[in-house]
């Protein structure tokens, strides 16, 4: 179906003044705040619209599962560095929640991958923002604003994403590291990830195979291991965002919380936390606040709100919201406005 037809169809409840929320694979429903239960659920199509490997760009419907996108790109030796916890997640879901993957240290945040968005605003008006080329400063960078806006500004229909060549080789390494492995960051040129759980550090290196071996030897990483460490998983989960220079201070607090499992992205400042009960997860949030950080609730956490903090510059954020959705119909409550 054509974009305009889809926009018209999906926009019908908005034209009728209904509250709406987009549902993709449902893998991010518990991230952030819940929206009104009475919202009309919208579904956005799935599928790759155009893909030109030599342009390093791909245009997809927002409802496309990440796994399906990566499979197509891999045939041409490319990828988009989206690494959702659950690969059945849709492209639109990952981008709406702004959840960057664990390879952010090398590949940058998810917001850097979005070039153009075709979407409808809260008045059901179809608009385009950004542009199809890998470099573009024509007009305001609305796509960046939509990343992490949890569907409260627009219903994203199609996205043009920046692709990257797949690395020639990649390898995970694991070393014992009771202390923060800050030295690993400088021992290597551009590691893709340095993950640390307070006992061990895992390093992901990407690039030329001989270079990987040479860097691993120089950094005393030993032999590659089979797999990445699993992200901590439990009924109650969150994602702490801390100034990476404060990670050591945060780790002291997290270590003191009994029953908390955590994995930190060294050099980035994202810390994935999980616990079997909500109280423990809330203790992690308290520890984060003590370090000037904040925690996004990703799952469970009964009685704990999604963000745990007021939005900065709330008046401005509200005016931005009103510019896109003056009637407040898009995912009401999902972001604490």
């Amino acid at each position: 179906m054509e974009l305009r037809e889809v926009a018209h169809e999906i926009g019908a409840p908005l034209r009728d003044g209904e509250h709406v929320v987009v549902t993709g694979a449902g893998t991010h429903d518990a991230v952030g705040n819940p929206t009104l239960a009475t919202c009309t659920r919208l579904r956005v199509p799935s599928g790759i619209v155009t893909y030109e490997p030599a342009d390093l760009t791909v245009r997809v419907w927002a409802g496309t599962p990440v796994r399906e996108l990566q499979a197509t790109l891999a045939e041409a030796g490319q990828e988009v560095p989206l690494d959702p916890r659950d690969p059945t997640a849709t492209v639109g879901g990952v981008i709406a929640c702004g959840l960057s993957g664990v390879r952010r240290l090398r590949h940058g945040p998810v917001r850097d991958a979005v070039l153009q968005v075709d979407a409808i605003d809260g008045q059901a008006t179809l608009f385009k923002a950004g542009g199809p080329t890998v470099k573009n400063v024509t007009g305001y960078d609305v796509p960046r604003l939509l990343v992490g806006s949890f569907g409260t500004l627009a219903v994203m229909l199609q996205l043009i994403l920046r692709c990257r060549p797949l690395p020639a080789a990649s390898a995970w390494y694991r070393v014992s590291s009771p202390d923060l492995p800050g030295n690993l960051r400088t021992a290597m040129l551009r590691p893709a990830a340095i993950l640390w759980d307070g006992r061990d550090a895992w390093v992901l290196a990407e690039g030329n195979e001989q270079d990987l071996a040479a860097e691993a030897e120089a950094a005393e990483l030993g032999e590659p291991v089979d797999a990445a460490p699993p992200l901590p998983d439990a009924a109650h989960r969150g994602r702490i965002s801390v100034d990476p220079a404060q990670l050591g201070a945060l780790a002291i607090r997290l270590r003191a919380i009994s029953g908390l499992r955590w994995l930190a992205e060294v050099g980035v400042g994202t810390v994935h936390v999980a616990a079997d009960d909500a109280t423990t997860l809330l203790a992690a949030r308290t520890g984060a606040h003590e370090c000037g950080a904040w925690m996004l609730r990703e799952a469970g956490g009964d009685g704990c709100d999604g963000f745990g903090t007021a939005l900065p510059h709330l008046d401005l954020a509200r005016r931005v919201k009103a510019a896109f959705d003056p009637r407040g119909l898009l995912a009401p409550g999902r972001v604490p406005l």
Binding site: D141, L145, G292, W294, F307, L311, P312, L316, V320, K321
Partner: peptide, 28 residues
Amino acid sequence: LPDATTARLGGLAPDTPGYDLRGVFVGS
């Protein structure tokens, strides 16, 4: 800001809660 108040957009932590005002300010 244009109303003469001051604000920090973005931050040193990888993500800030809410909208990426830093992202839209760059290039404005």
